[in-house]
Amino acid sequence: MTRFTRSAAAGADRTIVRLPRSSRFQLSASLFQPSLLGRFTGIVGFVFACAALGLVTTGAHAEDALTLTLKDHVFSPAELTVPAGKAFAIVVKNEDDAAEEFDSDDLHVEKVIAAKSSGTIHIKPLKPGSYKFSGEYHEATAKGVVIAK
């Protein structure tokens, strides 16, 4: 080992010098030096560009919309029936003076609907079954179910 190191210092052919593994790595890394921040930003930027490209290609889609009205912290209708296997949207109209969060672990969505306004929630195609939802801020009264057939 000592012999090899000495020959390296003398300017002998470096390719035959056995450097510790980590050190060899460091040599190649220093080839594209700039700054740590620069390289990091480059990589992250690349990943985001790929992600953005992916998003554009997945695109939008047509779907039916159902209306759900919230008044006095109660949803009506409390039961929505939808065809199974088809994407749809729920338009929640909040007629109360307070904001509400439409929340459903079953449907995998959460969305804040401001007071006196409405919000659209996109739901993916569902398997047949029932899916509970509620208004997180008034769980005692604001609740309902989506039934997919």
């Binding site: 998003l55 997945t58 695109g59 939008a60 889609h61 779907e63 994407a87 949207a89 995998h108 969505v109 959460e110 969305k111 929630i121 996109h122 993916k124």
Partner: peptide
């Protein structure tokens, strides 16, 4: 990703 699925932006591989 969950928020983007909810927004209808991501529509692939959305099965549970």
């Amino acid at each position: 990703v969950a928020f983007l699925e909810q927004a209808g932006v991501i529509t692939v591989m959305t099965d549970t």
